[in-house]
């Protein structure tokens, strides 16, 4: 009897650990799954957006596709959503309100999660080509000119550059385990002269 009682806590602890493990790992996988699946779902909304209507990808969404982001070298092809809130970024990279629309004059700032959609930022190199196709108008090409790390509250991203610019922002460092740090990784790309 007493031996059985002594045995129990171990069983419970192990079971609790397994349950917690499944729950936590599931939660983590779920974030990735959602990030990937949402992009697929967004694809059709994007097509309809291209056809001229502003489309919510699912009826209760509070965002809609504004552009398509492609990096040929890394085989990246993502639908960019309006707004860069946490809710939006779970589904795709987001265009920061108040900055130029992708492809327009000015600096267009896109944000994304470092561990899902914008993980590829770490692999970008100066000179890489980024193509942005806005919901309306022709696609525009940018070339990566550089990257830097800055505190999010003092990023000092210029809004009125002389040439159209694309700025991609994600959290830094890339392999940090805990989310929510103050640092941001900021990639700057200038419009390719050829595409002007």
């Amino acid at each position: 009897m007493s031996r059985a009682g002594a045995r129990r806590p171990g069983l419970w602890l192990a079971l609790a650990l397994v349950v917690t493990g499944v729950w936590q790992a599931g939660g983590g996988l779920y974030i990735h799954a959602k990030a990937a699946l949402a992009q697929a779902l967004l694809d059709s909304a994007w097509r309809r957006s291209r056809a001229g209507e502003a489309v919510r990808p699912w009826p209760w969404a509070d965002t809609w596709p504004v552009a398509r982001l492609r990096v040929p070298r890394l085989q990246i092809d993502q639908v960019v959503l309006a707004g860069a809130s946490g809710r939006t970024l779970a589904f795709g990279p987001g265009h920061m309100d108040g900055t130029a629309l992708p492809g327009a004059a000015g600096n267009s700032v896109l944000g994304g999660h470092r561990d899902t959609h914008f993980r590829f930022l770490a692999r970008l190199k100066p000179g890489d080509e980024i193509e942005v196709e806005p919901a309306r108008g022709a696609a525009r090409r940018f070339r990566v000119t550089g990257a830097r790390v800055a505190d999010q509250a003092q990023a000092g991203i210029e809004l009125a550059p002389d040439r159209p610019r694309l700025t991609l922002v994600t959290c830094y460092p890339f392999d940090a385990v805990r989310p929510g740090g103050p640092l941001r990784y900021i990639v700057t790309a200038e419009a390719s002269p050829a595409a002007e």
């Binding site: 936590q24 946490g86 920061m96 700032v109 999010q152 385990v177």
Partner: peptide, 24 residues
Amino acid sequence: PVLNQLPAGATPATLKLLIGLLAL
């Protein structure tokens, strides 16, 4: 003009995965 205050760019996915795997 400059733009400060950037969106948060990370999910707790890795953290959750790590905790989860460790617990498992």
